[in-house]
Simulated assay, not measured.
Amino acid sequence: ITATGATLTWTASTDSGGSGLAGYNVYREQGANDTQLGQSTTNSITLTGLTPNTQYQVYVRARDGANNLSGNSPAVTFTTLQGTGTGNGCAATGTVQNQWNNGYVVQPVTVTNNGTSAINGWTVTFTLPSGHTISGSWNATLTTSGQTVTARSMGYNGNLGAGASTSFGFQVSRPNGNTATPSGYTC
């Protein structure tokens, strides 16, 4: 279960009517207005696009080749995780490693997959203080728009399994004596 998704697995059905098992429909129970959340040809489904911090009560109906539906499975209830602004269970934190009068190095910026499914490519944004400019980076591709910096994963560090982390770093030039550092890391 993540903030916007969930993976469900159930016991496979068999069809005794002769037209063969074609798949499954997954529904959200909402009184008289049940909503179909998805279909699967196997006894598992990964739901996406769910609302963060929301309770879902779901059930499954088997479907045969003639589109006949079984009765409802027992309902299962789960609650999606709280949305934290870190998007998809990804979080980023930056550490200032070294500073001098007109610059500094931020390393590591740690990118962690706090979700339950793998991330294929990550993007981190943060804000540079006014007058500061990126003068170098490693283990990420950085682009700037105004004072907003966007860091994108490289081909070799973009895939993060659940609970895994990676890092990147960058160097900044700043006006002499200005001691501000970047803030607002989001992933």
Rank of each mutant, 00 (worst) to 15 (best):
I1P: 05
A3Q: 12
A3P: 13
T4S: 15
A6H: 01
A6M: 04
T7R: 07
L8W: 03
T9Y: 02
W10A: 01
T14R: 04
D15W: 05
S16Y: 06
G18V: 11
G20H: 03
L21I: 08
A22D: 05
G23D: 02
Y24E: 00
N25Y: 10
Y27D: 01
A32F: 09
D34H: 10
L37K: 02
Q39F: 12
S40L: 10
T42G: 00
T48K: 12
G49M: 11
L50A: 05
N53Y: 12
Q57W: 05
Y59L: 03
V60R: 00
V60P: 00
A62M: 01
A62R: 02
D64R: 07
A66W: 04
N68A: 11
S70H: 01
G71P: 03
N72C: 07
T77W: 09
F78W: 10
F78A: 02
T80E: 07
T80Y: 13
L81F: 15
L81S: 12
Q82M: 14
Q82A: 15
G83H: 14
T84Q: 09
G85W: 08
T86Y: 12
G89R: 06
G89N: 03
G89K: 04
C90K: 10
C90M: 14
A91Q: 14
A92D: 00
T93R: 14
G94K: 05
Q97M: 08
W100Q: 12
N101T: 13
G103P: 09
Y104T: 06
Y104G: 06
V105I: 15
V105N: 00
V106F: 03
Q107L: 09
P108S: 00
V109W: 04
V111A: 06
T112I: 07
N113P: 10
N114V: 15
N114H: 10
S117T: 15
A118R: 13
N120W: 13
G121D: 06
G121K: 03
W122A: 02
W122Q: 02
V124K: 04
V124D: 01
T125F: 12
F126E: 04
F126T: 13
L128P: 03
P129N: 11
P129G: 08
S130R: 08
G131P: 06
H132I: 15
T133M: 11
S137D: 01
S137Q: 12
W138R: 14
W138H: 12
N139L: 04
N139F: 00
A140Q: 02
T143Q: 08
T144K: 08
G146W: 03
G146D: 01
G146I: 10
V149R: 11
V149C: 11
T150F: 10
T150L: 13
S153V: 07
M154R: 09
G158C: 05
L160N: 00
L160K: 01
G161K: 03
G163T: 01
S167Y: 10
G169I: 00
Q171G: 11
V172A: 03
V172G: 01
S173D: 11
S173G: 13
R174I: 11
G177E: 13
T181F: 08
P182V: 15
T186Q: 09
C187R: 13
